[in-house]
């Protein structure tokens, strides 16, 4: 698997898309710092961007890479290699190269701006951790979709729909159900609802850092325990790990049964 990972990774690192992605984050970081000239505010704006954009890019890139390397995959399948190592290798190659672009693209301007001397460094690290998690989750989901759909157009369609659903529609439905059932105790439900969507989950992690004061205004005991202690952080990170693990397991499972 590591060999496949290595080749996928270097293949991607050389592709122009990685440069585009890297350049995009570099530009974003520079522009934000230029406009705000305030590190902590730039970090806040960046969080809003990352939570929406990283999943989108992870999804598109994952699907694209899968379909583009289909023939190459077939070449690999005829070699004495395990299927799971081929697909996991490719998946980790994609996820790692995307994460690299993200970390370098954002890291360089922020470090140049004096991140290490600022107390925004923890917020920034959290931001990168969340970004990496989202990249891993969404490229895994994209691989799942691509593995289940031979048709490229369909695969792309489903992938974009999935992103749209998790990034926007889910929250709309979530909010609506909270309003409809507002007479009932909802604190547990709302936390569970958050866990079921990786974007919401990452948002929660960031809220824990940025908006802790607002979150503590709510009176529910469950909320208080969740947001008021490190419990929330631990649970959220744990849930993110599960969100990576489940799609990866499905990649393994699905790849074993698929015909090429």
């Amino acid at each position: 698997m590591l060999k496949i990972l290595k080749y996928s990774f270097f293949d991607l690192m050389r592709s122009s898309w990685s440069y585009v992605y890297f350049a995009f984050y570099l530009l974003l970081g520079i522009v934000l710092l230029f406009l705000n000239s305030d590190l902590s505010k730039a970090v806040i704006t960046l969080m809003n961007v990352i939570i929406v954009l990283v999943p989108l890019i992870g999804t598109i890139f994952g699907v694209m890479y899968y379909y583009n390397s289909k023939e190459f995959t077939e070449l690999l399948l005829a070699q004495p290699l395990k299927r799971s190592s081929i697909f996991l290798g490719q998946y980790f190659g994609v996820a790692l190269s995307l994460s690299m672009s993200l970390i370098l693209g954002l890291g360089i301007p922020f470090i140049a701006y004096g991140l290490f001397k600022s107390n925004a460094i923890w917020d920034f690290s959290l931001l990168l951790i969340v970004g990496v998690f989202l990249t891993f989750i969404f490229s895994a989901l994209a691989f799942n979709i691509a593995l289940s759909n031979e048709n490229k157009i369909k695969g792309f369609g489903y992938a974009i729909l999935m992103w749209l659903f998790l990034a926007i529609i889910y929250d709309g439905l979530f909010l609506m159900s909270l309003i409809i059932f507002e007479d009932y105790p909802l604190d547990k439900v709302s936390l569970i609802g958050t866990m079921l969507n990786p974007i919401d989950l990452s948002r929660t992690l960031i809220l824990l850092k940025l908006d802790i004061s607002a979150l503590l205004g709510y009176t529910g005991a469950v909320f208080k325990q969740f947001f008021g202690t490190s419990f929330g952080l631990i649970i959220s990170i744990f849930a993110l790990i599960i969100w990576v693990a489940l799609p990866v397991l499905r990649i393994i499972h699905k790849s074993k049964k698929k015909d090429f």
Partner: peptide, 14 residues
Amino acid sequence: RTPESIVLLRSLFI
């Protein structure tokens, strides 16, 4: 109105 909806703070939908 619905205090629990605070968990959606900073969501794109919001």
